[in-house]
Simulated assay, not measured.
Amino acid sequence: MLSRARIVAAALRLLDAEGMEALSMRKLGAEMGAAATSLYRHVTGKDEVIELALDEVCGELVVPAADAPGDWREAVSRSGHNLRAMTLRHPWVASVLGQVGPAHLGPNLMRMSERMLALFQTAGFPASEAAPAMTAVVSYVVGATSGEAAHLSRIARGGQSERNPRALRDENFDYGLQRILDGLQARLAHA
C-alpha cells in the first residue's frame, strides 16, 4: 500500500545509496514495486519528495538548549557538529540544504531553525542580528560539509578507502567553526 511515509522512506534509501542524481519518480516507483504515476496520488513530484526527505532527516538533528547567555557558544558548536554529522550520514543533503527557501520549511527543519535561533537570542544578540548570526553558522557548516560529503561519496562509490583520517577532517571542521564563533562572540561583545 502506497503512502506518503512509505514514499519518503524509499526515497531516503535511494538517496542515501545512490545520491540525488539517481532519484527519479520512475526509479522510486520501481523501488517500491509501483508505477511512477501511482506515486502522484501522494506527492506532487520529485521536488516535493526531496523536500519531504530533507525534512525527515532534519528530524535526526539535536539542537541543545542554552539555559544561560554564557552557554550559547557550546550549544551552537554542538549544533554545528550535529548538522555536519547528519549531512555526512546523508551526503545528498549538502546539495539540497542551501536551496531550501522559507516557503519549503517542513516541521523538522522549522523546529531546528527555531531552536538554533533561540540560542542566539539567549546569548543576547539583538533581534536584528540573531537570524544573520544563525545563517552564518549554518552556511559555514553546509559549505564545509558539501565538499567533504561529495568526496566521501565518490570514495564509497568507487570502492576506495579514505586517505585522510577522520580525526583530521573533524579537527579542520572544528577549527573553522570555532573561528566563526570567535567572530560572533566578538560581535556580541560590541552589541
Results as ranks from 00 to 15, higher is better:
91 P>Y: 05
72 W>R: 06
61 L>I: 02
135 T>M: 08
61 L>C: 06
105 L>G: 01
62 V>M: 09
64 P>F: 12
114 E>K: 08
91 P>M: 12
127 A>T: 06
71 D>L: 06
141 V>H: 14
74 E>K: 06
142 V>E: 13
139 S>Y: 04
86 M>Q: 02
90 H>G: 01
116 M>Q: 15
117 L>K: 07
56 E>A: 05
122 T>Q: 15
130 A>F: 01
55 D>E: 05
91 P>G: 12
130 A>R: 12
144 A>P: 10
96 V>C: 14
95 S>F: 08
67 D>P: 00
72 W>M: 03
107 P>T: 04
124 G>F: 10
110 M>R: 11
97 L>A: 03
59 G>W: 01
140 Y>H: 08
60 E>N: 11
75 A>C: 15
122 T>W: 12
135 T>G: 05
113 S>T: 13
136 A>Y: 12
130 A>S: 05
121 Q>N: 08
62 V>P: 01
130 A>I: 07
76 V>E: 08
87 T>G: 06
70 G>I: 08
139 S>F: 04
144 A>C: 02
55 D>H: 00
82 N>R: 15
61 L>R: 02
115 R>D: 14
61 L>V: 05
105 L>W: 11
73 R>T: 02
135 T>R: 09
122 T>M: 13
109 L>I: 06
126 P>N: 08
79 S>N: 13
147 G>H: 10
68 A>G: 06
106 G>C: 00
142 V>M: 10
90 H>A: 01
84 R>V: 01
53 A>H: 04
96 V>D: 03
90 H>F: 02
142 V>A: 14
144 A>N: 14
66 A>Q: 05
91 P>V: 02
131 A>C: 09
90 H>D: 04
51 E>Y: 02
113 S>G: 09
71 D>A: 15
78 R>F: 14
92 W>P: 07
136 A>P: 01
138 V>C: 12
61 L>W: 12
59 G>A: 04
92 W>C: 00
51 E>K: 08
115 R>H: 13
